[in-house]
Simulated scan of single mutants.
Amino acid sequence: MEVFTRWHSWDTARADIAASGAPVDTDVLGAAVGAALRWHGDQRRPTGAPYVEHLLEALEVLVRGAGVTAPAVLTAAVLHDVVEDTPATPADVEAEFGAEVAELVDWVTKPPAPGGGRQAKRGARAAYLRRLGDAPPEAVQVKLADRVSNVQTLHRMPPDFQRRYYAETLTYILPLAEPHPWFRAWYAAWRTEYAHLL
């Protein structure tokens, strides 16, 4: 199972993209990384790492792994959490990056959890994940890359979270990966790697 944790900074990502010869617009992506840094500010991942590392991992999955070069998909991958986790709005994303990117970000943005406790939040999360079954393929690619970043080092998370997240990924994410050959193969290898969590 390949792990995508090489791109800790935009400088590394840009150099790798240039060396690969992939037809990727690094100017647009650089602007997206700048906007993500501005909006996310000093946010951290649960591991304590700067949040931008998660966004660059998702980008690395798409470029180095799945071979995606579509500018809107790659830009949306970098910006996929800005509406959910920062003060940025869909209108802000559209103003800077266009309607297509804003639509993709909107598809992968989890709605605010309603009140009512843990069960209500879990129900809302399940509804959001089910809704992705109706998303355009480009939005699904963004979500699949986001989840690869989150699950590729699942062993670093608390044991109860590992089991819950593994089960959720099997239920909702693996079906989304089926039409996408690279992601289907990656998730199959990941499922085997973490099969002890069943």
Results as ranks from 00 to 15, higher is better:
residue 157 M to S: 09
residue 155 H to I: 13
residue 101 V to N: 01
residue 94 E to I: 02
residue 8 H to C: 12
residue 14 R to Q: 14
residue 48 G to V: 06
residue 130 R to E: 14
residue 90 P to K: 09
residue 37 L to M: 15
residue 50 P to S: 10
residue 152 Q to C: 01
residue 146 D to H: 14
residue 175 P to C: 11
residue 194 Y to M: 07
residue 110 K to Y: 14
residue 192 T to A: 12
residue 174 L to F: 14
residue 57 E to Y: 01
residue 91 A to S: 10
residue 128 Y to H: 15
residue 121 K to Q: 15
residue 61 V to D: 01
residue 90 P to V: 08
residue 56 L to N: 00
residue 134 D to W: 11
residue 143 K to N: 13
residue 53 E to C: 09
residue 51 Y to C: 03
residue 6 R to T: 09
residue 186 W to T: 02
residue 182 W to E: 10
residue 168 E to H: 13
residue 132 L to M: 11
residue 21 G to Q: 06
residue 133 G to V: 08
residue 5 T to A: 07
residue 68 V to E: 06
residue 92 D to S: 13
residue 182 W to Y: 14
residue 156 R to M: 09
residue 30 G to V: 02
residue 125 R to D: 15
residue 63 V to Q: 02
residue 16 D to S: 11
residue 86 T to D: 05
residue 37 L to K: 11
residue 140 V to S: 03
residue 65 G to T: 00
residue 31 A to Y: 09
residue 3 V to A: 00
residue 116 G to P: 11
residue 6 R to A: 10
residue 51 Y to F: 11
residue 60 E to K: 05
residue 151 V to K: 03
residue 24 V to C: 05
residue 14 R to I: 05
residue 79 L to V: 03
residue 46 P to R: 15
residue 16 D to I: 06
residue 80 H to I: 07
residue 73 V to I: 13
residue 159 P to S: 13
residue 189 A to H: 08
residue 63 V to R: 04
residue 90 P to D: 04
residue 84 E to I: 01
residue 37 L to H: 10
residue 19 A to C: 10
residue 46 P to S: 09
residue 123 G to E: 14
residue 167 A to W: 15
residue 61 V to M: 01
residue 35 A to H: 05
residue 128 Y to E: 05
residue 137 P to M: 08
residue 106 D to A: 14
residue 1 M to R: 11
residue 9 S to A: 13
residue 97 F to K: 04
residue 142 V to Q: 03
residue 112 P to I: 10
residue 126 A to C: 03
residue 10 W to T: 01
residue 111 P to D: 08
residue 36 A to D: 05
residue 8 H to T: 14
residue 192 T to S: 14
residue 133 G to R: 15
residue 171 T to N: 12
residue 112 P to V: 11
residue 123 G to F: 07
residue 178 E to Q: 07
residue 62 L to V: 01
residue 149 S to Q: 09
residue 191 R to Y: 10
residue 177 A to T: 06
residue 135 A to I: 02
residue 152 Q to A: 10
residue 21 G to T: 09
residue 117 G to I: 08
residue 111 P to V: 13
residue 197 L to N: 00
residue 187 Y to Q: 12
residue 84 E to P: 00
residue 171 T to H: 15
residue 5 T to D: 15
residue 170 L to A: 12
residue 146 D to T: 10
residue 185 A to L: 09
residue 28 V to S: 07
residue 108 V to I: 10
residue 56 L to T: 00
residue 71 P to T: 05
residue 38 R to V: 05
residue 149 S to G: 12
residue 72 A to S: 11
residue 196 H to F: 12
residue 24 V to E: 00
residue 151 V to D: 02
residue 138 E to V: 09
residue 139 A to C: 08
residue 167 A to P: 13
residue 116 G to N: 12
residue 113 A to Q: 06
residue 38 R to N: 03
residue 57 E to R: 03
residue 84 E to N: 04
residue 140 V to K: 05
residue 118 R to H: 15
residue 110 K to Q: 15
residue 57 E to M: 08
residue 83 V to P: 04
residue 172 Y to P: 02
